[in-house]
Amino acid sequence: MRARSTFEQELTDLQQDILRLASLTEETIYRAVQFLLQQDAAGANQIISGDVLIDKLAQEIEDKCVKLIATQQPIAHDLRLSITSLKFLVSLERMADYAVDIARATLYIYGYPLNRQLMEYTSKMSRVVQQMIKEALDAYVNNDAQRAREMCSLDDEVDFISAKIFQEAIRAMREKTQPQIVIPAVYFLLISRYLERIADHATNIGEEVIFLITGEKRELN
């Protein structure tokens, strides 16, 4: 009985740890995009140096999770919880890395003239991506499989805006009058790819939430 209750406590702690990491990742992505749009180099540097904390946190949670599986040998929902936690970790850590990539891109394009249209699309895309992350995490917090299913439809919008960014970047680069636009345009292409990958990871989290709650595996995009 005693062992059982420590196990339950450990599982709850694990969920809290995941949420803590998620909060940090969510915020890092938001701020990375804000610093990009505001052309804030100091902020971008902050994001890059802040990644150490995320990596450290992820490593700690991973160790805990492995120890939990090894010593408690969970089954059924508990096993799913432990396994999905491991997968969440990987996704969240990866998402934060993309945020760092966005911050690096911010530094590279600092000082170049920026294409308003590209900025606008990126801002729009980041809002959709953040909505996806929020929905996925809310689904996890509230044990809401329906919400997780719905959130994945946002991925189409991300792809749509990403295509727009491609078009606009290519159009801008073809204009011979402004050769200095090429470098930021290329970075905006990369940034749109980073955001797209973040959205994919958010979708993965959504899928895992469905698996966690219902036990069924589903491909959502």
Binding site: R20, A22, L24, E26, L137, V141, N142
Partner: peptide, 17 residues
């Protein structure tokens, strides 16, 4: 929806926690 749940579920913010 949030009574009895951890603060992280209510406010997902690292600094606050």
């Amino acid at each position: 929806a949030y009574l009895g749940k951890n603060i992280l579920n209510l406010i997902r913010n690292y600094d606050l926690e």
